[in-house]
Simulated assay, not measured.
Amino acid sequence: MSKGTIAKSYKVGDKDETGVFVDLNFICPHCDFEDYKMILVRAKDFDEIDNGFETDQECYHCGKDMIVQCR
């Protein structure tokens, strides 16, 4: 089971018919490295963005998996 963390911040870009880019800032629960990712959320999942969502990510620094909660 992956450790979880809550995003320090996330910013949703402009939505279009294909999806939307979301910028995530979070701290790795394994090594405390502050990480930044840009993810693509498909158009069919737009309702999840509005209500908060989770995304599986890998830490750039230590390479371990985690679940980032965006709320």
Rank of each mutant, 00 (worst) to 15 (best):
D56T: 12
M66G: 02
D65T: 00
G13A: 08
F33N: 14
P29Y: 00
S9E: 15
V41P: 01
K3N: 05
F53E: 14
D35N: 14
P29E: 06
I27N: 10
I39T: 08
C70K: 07
D45W: 03
A7Q: 02
A43S: 07
N51E: 13
S2H: 08
I6Y: 06
F26L: 01
C59R: 06
F21K: 13
T18D: 13
G63L: 09
R71L: 00
N51Y: 10
N51R: 13
H30Q: 06
T55V: 15
F26K: 06
I49Y: 04
P29W: 00
M1Q: 02
V12R: 01
M38P: 00
G52D: 10
G19Q: 04
M38L: 12
G13W: 04
G4D: 01
H61N: 15
I67L: 12
L24W: 10
S9C: 05
A43C: 07
Q69F: 07
D47N: 11
I49K: 04
K37F: 00
D47F: 09
H30N: 13
C31L: 08
K64M: 10
C28L: 08
A7R: 01
D14R: 14
E58D: 13
E48K: 14
I39W: 10
K8Y: 04
Y36A: 08
D35R: 06
M38Y: 04
L40T: 04
F21V: 05
I39K: 09
F53P: 11
Y36H: 11
P29M: 00
A43R: 07
Q57A: 13
R42G: 10
S2P: 12
G19Y: 09
T55Q: 11
E48G: 04
C31G: 06
I6E: 06
V41E: 05
T55N: 11
K3F: 10
D14T: 14
I39G: 10
V12H: 02
K8I: 14
E54R: 11
T18P: 02
C62L: 08
F53C: 10
K37I: 03
A43N: 04
S9T: 06
S9A: 06
Y36W: 06
K11F: 06
Y60E: 15
D14M: 12
Y10M: 03
D35I: 02
L24R: 13
Y10L: 05
D47G: 01
R71C: 05
E34Y: 03
R42W: 08
D50Y: 12
D23T: 05
V12G: 02
V12M: 01
L24A: 01
V22G: 03
K44P: 03
E17M: 11
E48L: 09
F53R: 11
V68K: 00
E48M: 13
D35E: 15
N25Q: 07
G13V: 13
N25D: 12
Y36N: 06
D47L: 02
S2Q: 03
K37D: 09
F26N: 01
S2T: 03
V12Y: 05
P29L: 05
Y36D: 02
K15H: 09
C28V: 02
E54D: 14
C28W: 00
C62H: 07
D65Q: 08
D45V: 10
Y60S: 11
S9F: 01
G13C: 10
G52F: 08
